[in-house]
Design a protein around this nucleic acid. Structure first.
Lengths: 366, 366
DNA sequence: TCTGTCATCTGTACCGGTACAGACTTTATC
DNA sequence: GATAAAGTCTGTACCGGTACAGATGACAGA
């Protein structure tokens, strides 16, 4: 009445004295056999505890897996603690659901072959590549597998669909907003520009060698705005941090602290993400620095936490869920016109963490 | 130099005049052939753009997929908006990563066969079943597939590992806390007890037919505490809500509003989750009801948002990430001693949303 | 009665690999 | 010099299905 060993399609067929194909058809093409026989087959299957065709085998033959993979830079457990990434996953998940596809989360594993193999061996029909590192070896694996993939917030690749935002333009807006408020003394909290564990002030070499797309672009945007306002870029302190298990807010706290403890305290801090900015807010609060009275802070991303922060955070908004959903659609339903480059809109959202510079006018002239 | 059609292991073998097995071994068992030949094979593969053995085929032969599936009650996009669920996913993800396994998110699809097929055809080695519904047909599919699985916060199944908390005990603690503060007039915001879209006061039939494990248990816990304090359970208003795309906090808002707009306004509200409780806080704020002055609210789960709420939320804590991690370990590394039942600890976390009852003592005696 | 069509069912050839058991050389051991 | 032990490489038999092209018989129309 139950399984003796492990029933297969063939064992059911033998049991009933019919062909394998008939059993297969009973499951996949009911119109190919008489209803009575079909019932007999299904009945026998139930009887023998046959769970239906082995999905692995049918997938091998058919070629379609019915799942998409999402590749991360970091362990998934870290990535999901980033609200922006979590929203992208949600957007992608919603598309997968309507297309009846599963969603496989493929972690980034720091060193060596392990992370590469995960991509090489993932059982999916295509990938969303949500990774930022310019020279990621997994990109080559993707290409080699000959599987469709879509890049999200990643360095562009020729002939591959891409979804993201104008990071440079967004950053420029953030800096311009502070300039418009009269600020002249800045500090920046940045994500790591190079794939390592460094934490500290950005060095010229690191600045030059930056290989993470998003931080590099955002930094370039800040720079563009500040230099256009004749601020000496070299003298703007930049603290690099990389989010660990404590999340990006811990990184922001440490970066913010470093900036605020300098002799020349900035009056405005640009944080490369809202999580970083939240950490800066904490660091300021601990030092009794009033926001936005003494210090203006602008984040990036407009995650839900930004609006709920104390004070609510001025930031650059971008449609995270839409980003994930767009990427999913581009992958599952590729446009006939070939690979697309979709740039989603950003906008400045002014809240209470930024205010006009109220300087003591120490620097009258020079 | 590139692929002509799509190279296979066999085409490489032919090209080099060696056996298929030699090529296979070049990838999987380097010690089975001379280093020179291996280099030749790998070189030819590179030459022909062969991406390495097809993972589907090797999986079919080997039997190990290298991924675990996590099955949800709802669409993944909803589920991930529940902070508690997201934390469980993170805990599970961290275990998957150390075990080098992928993580497939399998959504619950409301009606019919579609959601069942997703479980039947998912390409994984085992499942974490994070679903609450007593009669879920997907459980039968899991059993039939003969694949290992672990239940999380789900109704128990004989001979299957289970991870969860003492929901009843936790709820009892929550209610007892309010009783200890002197409250006698309660309201409850509950998740749906039955798998449907109903929203409104719980009816006796629904109460009886409850088929969602967690809400039923928590309700039982509340009841146990209240009845032990001689409070008439029947007269305690309970509002059922189910979280939609707006998240549970919207549901809590609506449920809280219904309770607060009653003629006999409760002085204490028990919410079955923190998200629901946050909605209740909003509903109270809108009505100018002071918390905890006029109303005490206790949530459940102790998600990060509970501590950050205004006022910070009294709640029952449970180790969400540990729950996911424990389930993952139980699945990937099953204890020799057979299926386990792991009950993780809960604790009352008193914050600022609950305070002693300061009644007008209308009800002197009876 | 003959032919064509339709509904059912069957056989064979894959899908793309890996396990396992040799076969054939070398090299080490006594 | 004979035998054992390695070291390399090959052949065959699967893993568990599905696509596709018939084969068969019933039934309708001419």
């Amino acid at each position: 009445m139950t399984d003796k060993k492990r029933s297969t399609l063939e064992s059911i067929a033998r049991q009933l004295g019919v062909s394998k194909m008939t059993v297969s058809n009973a499951y996949n093409r009911p119109d190919q056999l008489s209803p009575e026989l079909r019932e007999r087959v299904l009945g026998a299957a139930r009887e023998l505890g046959y769970p239906g065709p082995n999905p692995l085998a049918s997938t091998l033959r058919r070629g379609r897996v019915g799942a998409v993979g999402m590749v991360f830079d970091e362990p998934v457990s870290f990535a999901l603690s980033d609200p922006a990434a979590a929203l992208i996953v949600r957007g992608l998940a919603s598309v997968c659901e309507t297309e009846r596809a599963g969603l496989l989360l493929v972690p980034g594993v720091p060193g060596g072959e392990a992370g590469i193999d995960l991509v090489r061996t993932a059982l999916v029909d295509g990938f969303i590549f949500y990774c930022d590192y310019e020279g990621d070896p997994r990109l080559k694996v993707l290409r080699d597998r000959g599987m469709p993939y879509v890049l999200v917030d990643a360095p562009a690749v020729a002939d591959v669909s891409w979804v993201g935002i104008d990071d440079r333009g967004g950053a420029q807006m953030a800096a311009q907003h502070l300039l418009d408020l009269g600020h002249r003394s800045f500090g920046i909290v940045s994500f790591n520009l190079v794939p390592d564990d460094y934490e500290g002030p950005v060095t010229p070499e690191r600045h030059k060698m930056g290989s993470f797309h998003v931080p590099v672009e955002r930094l370039a945007g800040y720079r563009q705005a500040l230099e256009a306002a004749s601020i000496d870029w070299i003298s703007v302190p930049i603290e690099e941090r990389h989010p660990g298990p404590g999340g990006a807010s811990a990184a922001g706290h440490s970066g913010g602290a470093a900036l605020l403890d300098r002799a020349a305290q900035p009056t405005a801090i640009l944080a490369m993400s809202d999580e970083l900015a939240l950490g800066v807010l904490r660091a300021a609060a601990q030092r009794g620095i009033d926001i936005p009275g003494d210090l203006s802070v602008v984040g990036f991303d407009d995650t839900p936490a930004a609006a709920a922060a104390e004070p609510p955070l001025t930031t650059i908004s971008q449609p995270h869920e839409l980003k994930g959903a767009t990427a999913g659609r581009l992958l599952l339903d590729p446009p006939a016109s070939g690979p697309q480059r979709v740039v989603l809109p950003t906008a400045l959202v002014v809240r209470a963490s930024s205010a006009p510079f109220r300087g003591e006018r120490e620097t009258t002239t020079e």
